[in-house]
Design a protein around this nucleic acid. Structure first.
Length: 257
DNA sequence: ATGACTCCCAGTGGGAGA
């Protein structure tokens, strides 16, 4: 089973690229973030014509997530149960016995901002929920735009970014807490090229200079760790005309079904 | 350089993203 995640920064703009990517890679599931669409505008018809069914959860202008799968999913959940939130950031479903959770983590803006406090509270809520989900779903995958660079090796200039948003000790501690629930960073289960990033700023010719961060992740539970056969970042879509600032990340699981 | 780009909703500017 192949699962992918991609922050598309507007599905309206990026739908042709998503359809191209689905055709080229044939994933079993693709989780999208920052669709920036109200639910009435979600392009489920176009995706169905490409052989994929969709679950979606959006809002106007900001955020918005979707689960695009070849086979139907069960037990769809939207946002974090028990954590009241105006923002559409999480969608989950069960696919072939695997609990798949796609999330657009808050950005946080700046460590001294109200948005950072929201990010911390949201991360607390997520951590508590994932802990509960693991009790009933040993086979669980948590993917998405985490807006956290877990380690210095995930940052092109760790000195300049030290203590900045996406790299604060508080955010990194939350990432480690997720791992401590029994999750594993699929990307780091394999040898990877140095300077592997999933996001490059639109400004400053950042992609051309390969100045990026690795902030999009795929975490797999203990029960799935040995099933992971590959995990990679696909930089190619970042070279498209009008690209998203994020690249897709995908994982392959050797699972029955 | 508190920049640079892109998206959105707006409405010829401003917020947000990361």
């Amino acid at each position: 089973m192949r699962i992918a995640t991609w922050n598309v920064n507007s599905l309206t703009v990026r739908l042709p690229q998503v359809l191209d990517w689905l055709a080229a890679h044939q994933p079993d599931a693709l989780c999208l973030q920052e669709t920036k669409l109200t639910d009435d505008k979600f392009p489920h018809t176009e995706l169905a014509a490409a052989g994929y069914q969709s679950q979606w959860f959006g809002q106007k202008t900001y955020n918005g997530v979707a689960l695009i799968t070849r086979a139907p999913v069960d037990a769809v959940a939207k946002n974090i149960p028990g954590y009241a939130d105006e923002q559409s950031r999480v969608i989950a479903g069960t696919l072939n016995g695997v609990r798949l959770i796609g999330a657009y983590f808050p950005n946080g803006q700046a460590p001294d901002s109200d948005k950072f406090q929201y990010k911390m509270a949201w991360l607390e809520g997520l951590q508590a929920w994932i802990n509960e989900e693991l009790k009933s779903h040993a086979r669980l995958v948590l993917v998405g735009d985490y807006n956290i660079a877990p380690e210095d090796q995930d940052v092109f200039d760790p000195v300049a970014w030290a203590g900045q948003i996406l790299c604060t000790p508080e955010e990194r501690a939350h990432f480690q807490r997720l791992l401590s629930l029994g999750l594993h960073d699929a990307f780091r289960l394999f040898e990877q090229p140095a300077k592997s990033w999933s996001w490059w700023d639109y400004r400053n010719l950042a992609f051309r200079k390969n100045q990026g961060l690795r902030i999009d992740h795929i975490l797999v539970s203990d029960a799935l760790k040995s099933a992971v056969t590959a995990c990679s970042i696909d930089k190619l879509p970042r070279k498209n005309e009008r690209p998203s600032d994020h690249a897709p990340v995908w994982v392959t699981l050797d699972t029955p079904g």
